[in-house]
Design a binder for these strands. Structure first.
Length: 540
RNA sequence: GGCCUUAUAGUUCAAUGGAUAGAAUAAGGGUUUCCGGAGCCCUUGAUUCAGGUUCGAUUCCUGAUGGGGCCA
């Protein structure tokens, strides 16, 4: 507009005219409110889809680490962990599809006062109960004793208060708590009996987690254990002191002043030389880099730790590590339920294992209601219910922008209508059905169709957009982009194939073209769903 | 108290600074022949408030208010 010295309408018209003359792919153009709209010839769309390869593949270029899950070993996984795991593993898939070499890491918090609490309660009240003897999943068993500890500890505190001890004192003096702290000291001193019990109970938990992970469909290339890493980082504090990044206070504790960066002063080493959380995170970050030299490292951690990661990354940069620029905190919001917030104290936590089996059970009921499983073997049905139940769960959780707090409604997620996983899966199954019944046909396109419908152009455009969406998802670390794209694609397909005339009175050539388009759509859906960790059922 | 984050139909979610803010669900209406009606079509309905930047703001900036979190 500045160049032409004309108003936007006139400028657009002039450009449009010029393009019409010089380009062979334009059908027409029009100008609305200063927007120049170019209409491409249908042949452009037709030929672009015919030469299109739905699934791009590239050579590996960079290494990236995705750390997620990172559970504590004192209780089983819950709904919040599910979002974490799904985000992490889906992100790993998306990055792989964008040619990154991905290392999926899991940093397990296997030490500390919390696991000592479970151990102590088991010692006192457990009567040698094991996963085998009780039939309980190991993580649930250990979780049970964590709750048990809490119960007894509270009772002790109550007694103390009744004896006249002040409340804040009482909560520190409960005999059980003191005993747990003592156990932690023994653990740190390497006491054999304590270590043995710790190993046994942790192993129960790991066996339990393994089942949960398998059901969720996540896996890891590298496990880190805090029991191995909790002493790391002290040498880097030393180094930072020499560089003048940190300073000592008179009590001997080491700090960093981040007030110039809009943050506070932060303790990095206590006066007695013991670590704080961030100390070991500094050390672990270096350990990871030394081991893999990833150009990017992503931490999938809830948004309550936003501040922690801001500080951590800043410290690493100030220590002079170039690789600190490749660190990213994928922060995600909490998951709410229709019944309200999850609060462990009120027992409203939704257990991950329970949730998954409920989803699968609901998938079964819904599908049986519709009575379309006739002719399927029991094995096929079981697999289908799993595919649908887990697909519903994953799709629903990944559809939402990670950053935002979300509301998980199990009933709504598994509905076959609406913006759900099963709806996308249905579309895939439907296309498969179409392809099956056309199996025997000659699907060669001898001649490019001369005209196609607007709804076909729309579907073609959507299919073609996939690569861009994939890139966007990788750049913004957001699986929700893929999920929303898949909904759009499924809708575009269903809309097109509801047009009765498309099924009738068409010549073999047009038919072949549409089958080609359908096959590409199916391929794209399958690829997209797999990035979300969702299976595509051949039939449903 | 300081800091971070969020605010869109009744509800749950979308929208590289761009056109008439999209879906889904709920409510109401429609879809005789159809390789899958678990679909498709129509109707009703929304940007928290007050300023600012811009030709143009749901989007960026400032402030207020509500939700969530972190730190003391």
């Amino acid at each position: 507009v500045r160049f032409s010295k004309l108003n936007p309408e006139q400028t657009a018209n002039a450009i449009g005219e010029a393009l019409m003359q010089s380009s062979s792919v334009l059908q027409s153009f029009n100008v609305v409110k200063g927007f120049l709209n170019l209409e491409l010839k249908q042949s452009v769309w037709i030929s672009s889809i015919l030469s299109h390869q739905a699934i791009p593949s590239f050579p590996k270029k960079e290494k990236v680490m995705v750390e997620y899950s990172s559970p504590n070993t004192n209780k089983p996984l819950h709904l919040g962990h599910v979002r974490n795991n799904l985000l992490g593993s889906s992100l790993a898939n998306i990055l792989k599809a964008n040619a990154y070499e991905v290392i999926q890491a899991n940093l397990i918090n296997d030490r500390g006062i919390h696991i000592c609490k479970s151990m102590l309660a088991w010692q006192k009240f457990g009567q040698n109960e094991t996963p085998e003897s009780s039939g309980m999943k190991g993580d649930h068993l250990v979780g049970k004793y964590y709750v048990e500890f809490d119960k007894h500890c509270k009772a002790e505190i109550k007694t103390l208060i009744e004896q006249g001890v002040a409340e804040d004192q009482a909560s520190k003096q409960a005999p059980l708590l003191l005993e747990a702290q003592d156990m932690l000291r023994k653990w740190e001193a390497g006491d054999q009996a304590t270590i043995a019990l710790w190993q046994t109970m942790n192993q129960w938990v790991y066996d339990g987690f393994a089942k949960t992970y398998k059901q969720l469909g996540v896996e890891f290339d590298q496990y880190y254990y805090e029991s191995n890493t909790y002493l790391l980082g002290k040498d880097l504090i030393e180094m930072g002191l020499e560089k003048g990044v940190f300073y000592k206070k008179t009590d001997g504790s080491t700090w960093i002043d981040l007030s110039a960066d809009g943050l506070d002063e932060k303790l990095v080493l206590r006066g007695d030389g013991t670590s704080v959380y961030i100390t070991q995170d500094i050390g672990t970050a270096q350990l990871k880099y030394n081991q893999y030299a990833c150009s990017k490292s992503i931490y999938v951690v809830g948004n309550e730790q936003d501040y922690h990661f801001k500080v951590l990354f800043l410290i690493l940069k100030k220590l002079g590590f170039d690789w600190a620029n490749g660190l990213y905190h994928l922060s995600y919001g909490m998951v709410d339920l229709p019944s309200g917030k999850m609060k462990s104290r009120e027992g409203t936590v939704v257990d991950a294992d329970d949730l998954m089996s409920e989803m699968i059970q609901t998938a079964k009921e819904k599908t049986e209601e519709l009575g379309k499983t006739s002719g399927m073997s029991d094995e096929e049905k079981t697999r289908l219910y799993h595919t649908l139940g887990m697909g519903a769960l994953k799709f629903f959780m990944l559809k939402v922008d990670p950053q935002k707090r979300m509301l998980f409604n199990p009933a709504e997620s598994i509905d076959f209508q609406g913006d759900t996983g099963p709806f996308v899966q249905y579309t895939y199954a439907r296309i498969n059905s179409i392809m099956r019944s056309a199996q025997a046909e000659d699907k060669t396109i001898h001649q490019v169709p001369s005209a196609i419908r607007a709804s076909e152009v729309q579907l073609i455009q959507t299919v073609l957009a996939y690569k861009q969406e994939l890139q966007k998802a990788a750049q913004s670390y957001s699986p929700s982009i893929i999920a929303n794209y898949l909904l759009q694609l499924a809708k575009a397909f269903n809309r097109l194939y509801n047009d009765v005339s498309i099924l009738k009175a068409i010549d073999a050539n047009e038919r072949a073209f549409r089958l080609h388009l359908s096959a590409l759509t199916a391929e794209t859906i399958q690829h997209g769903l797999s990035l979300l960790g969702v299976n595509s059922p051949e039939r449903m």
